[in-house]
Design a protein around this nucleic acid. Structure first.
Lengths: 232, 232
DNA sequence: ACCACAGTATGGTCAGACCATACCGAACCA
DNA sequence: TGGTTCGGTATGGTCTGACCATACTGTGGT
C-alpha cells in the first residue's frame, strides 16, 4: 500500500491532455470555424510538453474533422479550425467495413432510414428542389454507370441537405461514399435505369408538392428497385 | 515549366502513406478484430519511415476506433485491431457541438429518427426485450436525475441494439452520450417522471407484441413528452 | 512446485535537428 | 514610382536517437 491514495486506473497520455486543453480552449474562448490555433512549437511550450505530443493531438483533431493544417507562413498557415465531419465519418465507415465489423447491409439499411426521413422532412418544409432537378439532369446525361452513380449520389445527398439537418446530411454523404462501388455494381447489374429515373421523378414531385408521406414511400420503393437482392 | 510532367496537387504526408499501407494490409490479409499489428519500431523499419510517422498513423486509427494500443509485453500488448466506432462518433459529435457547427436540435432530431426506426425494426423482428425491462427497473429505482438518465439511456440504446443494426446502435449511443447533460436538465425541468414511465411501458409492450407502427408512434410521443420545448 | 528477480519487448515521451513550403519585406533595379 | 528579385523567417513535416514505465518471460534458486 502506498499512502498516496488512489492510483489512476488508466494513465492519461500526454496527447490526451493536450487534446483536453485544446478542447477547453475552444469552448471557453468560444473559438469557432476559421480561427487559428497556436503554432505547434508554441503550443508545446505553453503546455510544457514535447512537440510530438502536440502533433499527435493534432492528428486526432484532424481525423475528427475539426482542424486543418497548412504549412508555410501567413494568416492561412498553421492549424485552422474547420468543420468537416464528412471525411471523418467516411473513414470510419470504410475502415470498419474493411474490418468486417460492419456489413454493407447495415449501411444500406441506415441509408434507407435516413433517406425516408429526410425526404419527408424536405417535403414538409417545402425545401428548395433545384439541386434535385440538376442532379436528375446529370443522370440523364450520364454515359457510364460510374457517372450515373455520381449524379445519383448528388441527388440523394441533396435530399439529405434539404432536410436542413447537417448531422444527417453528413452521415448521408459518408454512407453514400462507402457504398460507391457497391452502387456502381448494382446499376450495372440492373442495366436499365429508366425505372430508377421514374422513381427519382416521383420523389422530386412529392417533395415539391410537400407530400411527406408519399415522398417517404417513393424513397422506400426506389431503394427496393435499386437493390432488389436486399428486399426479399 | 518543368519537364517532369505533373506535380501532385497535394503532397501525401508520410503518416497518410502508413495509414494506407496498414489499411491495405487489413483488407488484403483479411485481418480482423483481435489481430495484432506489428510493433511500431518494426512497422517503421518495414515501411522505411520514422517511428513518429507510424505513431501519428496509430493515433488516427485509434481515433477512428479500429485499433487499441497496450503497453508492456506479451500477446495482449501492442496495437490490436478492435471495433469501437462509438467513442469515435462521440468525440466527433462533442467537438462539433463545441464548435457550434452542429446544434443540439439536430442531434435530437437524428435521435428521434433513429429511435422510431429502431423500435419498429425491433418490433417487427420480435427482438428480445429483457434488456429493455431491466433498464425500466433501473429507472424505477433511480434516486437522482443523473441516475434516471443513466438507465433511460440504457433503455433507449437497448432499443437500438434490438434493431440488429450495429451501425445504428453505435450512432445511437454516441447521440445519447452527447445529449447526457441536456437530458439531465430536461428531466429536472420535468420533475415528474411518471409520464415517461408510462411511455416506456407502452414502447416495451408494443415491441413485445410485434406492433411496429405502434412502437414507432409511442417513441415519437415519448420524445414529445421528454423534450416539449422542441415540439411546438 | 513455488517464488524472486533479471531480461526484454512494448508503447510513451522528449529533445534537437533538418527539410519544404509559403509568406514577408527589404533591397534593387527600370 | 513601380515592379522584381531574393534573402529572412515562421510554419508544418520528418527523422534520429535517446530514455522511461510497463508488463510479460524465462531462469535460477529454494
Amino acid at each position: 500500500m502506498d499512502g498516496t491514495g488512489w492510483r489512476p486506473v488508466k494513465r492519461t497520455r500526454t496527447f490526451e491532455d493536450v487534446l483536453a486543453q485544446i478542447e477547453r480552449r475552444i469552448t471557453e474562448d468560444g473559438l469557432t470555424v476559421g480561427d487559428r490555433l497556436p503554432a505547434e512549437r508554441q503550443l508545446a511550450e505553453q503546455l510544457g510538453v514535447s512537440r510530438s505530443s502536440v502533433r499527435e493531438a493534432m492528428r486526432v483533431l484532424e481525423t475528427l474533422g475539426v482542424v486543418s493544417s497548412q504549412v508555410g507562413r501567413g494568416p492561412d498557415a498553421g492549424a485552422v479550425l474547420t468543420s468537416r465531419p464528412d471525411s471523418a465519418l467516411t473513414d470510419l465507415l470504410r475502415l470498419h467495413l474493411g474490418l468486417a465489423s460492419l456489413e454493407m447491409r447495415e449501411v444500406i439499411d441506415a441509408r434507407h432510414m435516413i433517406e425516408q426521413w429526410a425526404a419527408a422532412q424536405a417535403a414538409a418544409a417545402g425545401a428548395d428542389t433545384s439541386a434535385l432537378a440538376a442532379a436528375l439532369d446529370g443522370m440523364d446525361g450520364a454515359k457510364t454507370a460510374e457517372e450515373f452513380v455520381e449524379h445519383d449520389t448528388a441527388f440523394h445527398c441533396a435530399i439529405a441537405d434539404a432536410s436542413g439537418n447537417r448531422l444527417i446530411a453528413a452521415i448521408m454523404r459518408s454512407l453514400r461514399d462507402s457504398m460507391r462501388r457497391y452502387s456502381v455494381e448494382a446499376v450495372q447489374r440492373l442495366g436499365d435505369t429508366s425505372v430508377l429515373r421514374a422513381d427519382h421523378v416521383r420523389i422530386l414531385e412529392a417533395v415539391e408538392r410537400g407530400a411527406a408521406d408519399e415522398a417517404a414511400q417513393a424513397v422506400s420503393e426506389h431503394l427496393a428497385h435499386a437493390y432488389p437482392s436486399l428486399f426479399r
